[in-house]
Simulated assay, not measured.
Amino acid sequence: MRQYRAMVAVGDSFTEGMCDDTLPDGQFRGWADRVAAVLAAEAGADGFRYANLAVRGKLIGQIRDEQVDLAAATDADLVTLAGGLNDVLRPGCDIAEVERQLGACTRALLAGDRTVVLFTSTDPTRRMAGSRRLLPAILRMKAFVEGVVRDHPDRVVLVDLFSAPVFDDRRLWAEDRLHLSPEGHRRVALAVLEALGRPAAEDWRAPLAEPDPRTRAQRARADARWLGTHVGPWIGRRLRGRSSGDGRPAKRPELLPYEG
């Protein structure tokens, strides 16, 4: 099991960590922060450094231009890369271009003696109305990422979220159904640590212990609230050519000592 001394996380809101709970400084505590905390505890007195360059709303081309070169220029021995889903969500997405950009990002990050972590997307079709149109692109992205991992079996590790039905449970998602809840981030952190060879403290794929207590009427009201509160504003930003990440800096832009 490789011991890591420095981690850089790149991507969009998934990696930034957007969820329903925050740290005392107002930042989100996502799966990458949780993974860094575990690796920092392992490093102990030797010290561990962590940067999180991810910014919500970023497309894969923006991730490449704004984050990947910065990450590749560090001496981090672990880099996580998740991106492309914001592109897929947009009508008329050029999936071949997304694959090209994602491949270029991976090649740049593989320079040097480091491990790169890639992800497959969760399957949104059983938790988010109207998402079935996205499935062909998501499946194509899944196959592409799996191919990258096969081409670099000693350098790239895969976190396969698509094959985990537990992510069909809406309690693993925030109210907007695009971002993980605290429990969702906790599960992804466990999945990343398992992919990195850490002993499993629990089965992150296991269903939640208690069934969803909401009635059908409560779920219907939640659907209506979701459409008005989250889908409408998202469409409005797309029409105006705006992003939730416009002008927003990375929450942890430098590779600095981290104690968790």
Rank of each mutant, 00 (worst) to 15 (best):
H152F: 10
D246F: 09
E97K: 00
D12Y: 03
A51C: 11
R34F: 03
V116F: 08
A191G: 14
S131G: 11
S244N: 13
V156A: 06
A41N: 13
V68S: 02
D75T: 12
S244I: 15
T125F: 05
P24W: 15
E99C: 12
A174L: 05
A36P: 03
L118R: 10
D113H: 11
M141C: 13
R56H: 08
D46R: 15
L172C: 14
R237L: 13
A189R: 01
T15G: 06
P182A: 09
L172A: 06
P257L: 08
M18T: 15
A250P: 07
R242A: 13
I235G: 05
N86K: 06
V145T: 14
T215K: 11
H230K: 08
A217D: 15
D168A: 14
T115N: 12
P211I: 04
L53E: 11
T120A: 02
G30M: 05
L81R: 09
P91K: 12
V88N: 01
I235D: 08
R187Q: 01
E210W: 06
N86E: 06
V88G: 06
A224C: 03
E99Q: 14
Q218I: 04
V88A: 08
P165H: 09
R107D: 15
F119W: 09
D12L: 00
Q218S: 03
D77F: 06
G83R: 09
A76L: 07
K58C: 02
L81T: 03
G184H: 00
P257C: 05
A206G: 01
R5E: 09
G184F: 02
D113V: 08
D169M: 06
G26L: 07
A224L: 14
R186H: 14
A72T: 04
Y258G: 00
R49W: 06
C105D: 10
R219D: 11
P253D: 00
G112H: 12
A54S: 15
P211Y: 05
R49N: 07
R56S: 10
A82Q: 12
R219S: 12
V55S: 06
A220G: 09
A82T: 08
T115E: 03
P24A: 14
A206R: 00
E16Y: 01
E175F: 12
V156N: 01
R100F: 07
D25V: 05
V38L: 10
W226T: 02
V166P: 12
F48H: 02
R49H: 10
G61N: 14
A206H: 00
I63M: 14
F162H: 14
A76V: 03
L78T: 00
L70I: 14
R2Y: 11
D20Q: 15
D154N: 11
E175M: 13
A43V: 09
G84D: 01
Y50C: 04
W173I: 05
L118Y: 04
L255P: 05
G83Y: 04
A6L: 03
F48T: 02
F14K: 01
D169T: 03
A191W: 01
G103V: 04
E210F: 07
R205Q: 07
D169K: 01
H152D: 05
P233D: 01
R238H: 10
V79S: 08
L135S: 12
G47H: 15
L70K: 15
A189P: 05
V68F: 02
V159R: 05
D203L: 10
M128W: 05
